[in-house]
Each structure stands twice: as structure tokens, then as C-alpha cells.
């Protein structure tokens, strides 16, 4: 079984700062990490590999530095890694990104058929959740988004059953391989990297694919990067700061009972929706 996991290197959201004057993201000095949502996808892929055997290939599209994210993924146990990197990809929106990734996955398929493509439900920097569905459509693969649990995989029958998060419940879906799965967060925990994998990750001959190597011909150059992106960012600005700090609740008596009654009264006045929600529960 061959699973391709698409990951993205993102700036650690915990350390993002916005320049107060220019309103641009200050990337300098911000550590780059694997998109946390992608780790759930990678772990799920590694678990399937543990059960069924096979190969896990991680890919990412990004600048040369994104190699670090791939090496990290190798240290967790991925077998192979490909960095898709080319100036031609710069400025890509989700439509252009899905074109490039789909093309690269087709190249991978030429060497080894791909049974599944896994990815996180979204990234923490873009938050779009659009690249997964885009790649699936371009590869004409069945799409399973927001998968909370892989119930079973039968590689010999090319069949997979998953639980997919829907509003108010989960759908149990059965489909045929190959398929693309976006993995919901919080249902597994990334394993620790072990020593042999860490050594292997450091030495692994990582593949670096240019646009041509990713299978994108000259005629398709208008489908990638800035040119291939229908959406244009017209303005970036800082949000109006939330009413600075919390409204601190204090009562003369200092009695927790009075504190509780005071905060409830304030809240119900300002947030009628909360009061309504609580009233619903009285029924």
C-alpha cells in the first residue's frame, strides 16, 4: 500500500508577530513547523502502514527551506520525501497549488501506484481547507474530507471505510481506492521519532523536483504560481484590536457567589445568544 501525505511548512502561529507599521507578517526569526493539522494525517498514514505494510511518501511544495519539514516527517517514520520547489510556483493560491501537487502526485504514480493521498484538514496559516478537495478533483480521486476515523482499509479489494464528520453526527462512508482523505484534528497523537529514523532522516537523499520534474509542461505554466491563481490579495490589514483586556469582575464582598451572579448578569445582557442557549437547556 502506498500513501502519499501532503504537508506544508508553516510559521509557528504561536510566534507570529505583525509589524505595527507596515502590517506585514514578520517572518524573521519565527520558527517554521510542519502544519500541526498535517501531523494528524501523517500519523494516520503511519498507523495504516504499521497495520498493512507499504510505503509512506511525504511531499510538500515550498521554498528550499521546507526541506526541514520533510526531514522531520522522515524522522517520524515516512519512507520517502519529495520537495517540489521552483520559483514558478511563487504566489500560488489554492487552485494553482492543487494543480502543482496533483501533477507531482501523477509523477509519483508513474513509479509506484498511489492508493491514498492524505492531508490535514487545513493549514494554520491559510486556513482554507481547499487544497485537499482541489487535488482530489484534479486526480479524479474519491474525496473524503474531515475524516475522524479510518474504520477499515482492504488493499486487496481497493476499499476503504471511514467516519466523516458532518454537522450533528458522523457519516460512515465506503469508497474505492485510490482516494484522497483529509484527516480531522485531535483524534490521534504524533508518535515520537526514534533514533534509527532520526539518523535515516538526516541522511536520506531527499528528492527535489523542479516544475518540469513535477510534470508541469510549458503549456501549463499559466496554471501555476501567481498566473494560475484566480484570487488576488487586494489588501492586508491588522484587525481592530478586541476590547483590549477582559472586563474584570470584582465584588466588594469578595464572595464567589456574588462574583458568579454578577458575571452571569453581565453576560446575559451583552450576549443574549448565550442566555438563549442556556434557556434551551431548561426544556
Amino acid at each position: 500500500m502506498h500513501i502519499v501525505v501532503c504537508i506544508k511548512q508553516v510559521p509557528d502561529s504561536a510566534q507570529i508577530r505583525v509589524h505595527p507599521v507596515t502590517n506585514t507578517i514578520m517572518r524573521q526569526g519565527v520558527p517554521a513547523i510542519i502544519n500541526p493539522y498535517d501531523l494528524f494525517a501523517l500519523e494516520e498514514a503511519l498507523r495504516l502502514k504499521d497495520q498493512h505494510g507499504g510505503t509512506v511518501t511525504v511531499i510538500t511544495m515550498g521554498p528550499p527551506q521546507a526541506e526541514a519539514a520533510l526531514r522531520k516527517a522522515l524522522s517520524f517514520g515516512a519512507d520517502d520525501a519529495i520537495l517540489i520547489t521552483d520559483r514558478a510556483f511563487a504566489g500560488a493560491d489554492t487552485l494553482a497549488t492543487s494543480f502543482a501537487l496533483a501533477s507531482a502526485i501523477r509523477q509519483i504514480q508513474k513509479n509506484m501506484p498511489v492508493d491514498m493521498v492524505f492531508t490535514g484538514k487545513q493549514t494554520i496559516d491559510g486556513d482554507t481547507a481547499q487544497v485537499g478537495p482541489g487535488v482530489a478533483k484534479r486526480l479524479d480521486m474519491q474525496l473524503l474530507t474531515y475524516v475522524s476515523k479510518v474504520v477499515s482499509v482492504k488493499p486487496d479489494k481497493a476499499e476503504i471505510v471511514v467516519e466523516r464528520r458532518a454537522e450533528g453526527g458522523v457519516q460512515v462512508l465506503k469508497t474505492r481506492l485510490p482516494c484522497l482523505v483529509t484527516v480531522l484534528d485531535g483524534n490521534n497523537q504524533m508518535r515520537f521519532a526514534n533514533m534509527p529514523n532520526m539518523f535515516r532522516a538526516a541522511r536520506h537523499p531527499l528528492k527535489r523536483w523542479s516544475r518540469e520534474e513535477a510534470g508541469i509542461v510549458d503549456e501549463d505554466i499559466a496554471k501555476i504560481g501567481l498566473k494560475g491563481s484566480p484570487t488576488v490579495v487586494s489588501k492586508v490589514f491588522a484587525p481592530t484590536p478586541k476590547s483590549e483586556r477582559a472586563e474584570m469582575i470584582a465584588v466588594e464582598s469578595g464572595d464567589p457567589k456574588d462574583l458568579a451572579v454578577t458575571v452571569l448578569a453581565k453576560m446575559f445582557t451583552r450576549f443574549p445568544a448565550v442566555e438563549k442557549e442556556i434557556a434551551k437547556r431548561a426544556q
Binding site: L95, Q130, P133, A136, K137, T145, R165, E167, S229
Partner: peptide, 23 residues
């Protein structure tokens, strides 16, 4: 921008080759 809306929007936009802004 729900699980259903995002699943559908991403697929429709790619099929139609048009721009989609999320969330």
C-alpha cells in the same frame, strides 16, 4: 464554511477553475 460547505466549495471551484475565498 462548514464541513459540508467547504467540502463542496473546494470541489466545485476546482472543477469550474475559478477563485474561491475561504472562511
Amino acid at each position: 464554511a462548514t464541513t459540508q460547505g467547504r467540502d463542496l466549495a473546494g470541489s466545485v471551484a476546482t472543477t469550474l477553475q475559478t477563485g474561491l475565498t475561504a472562511d
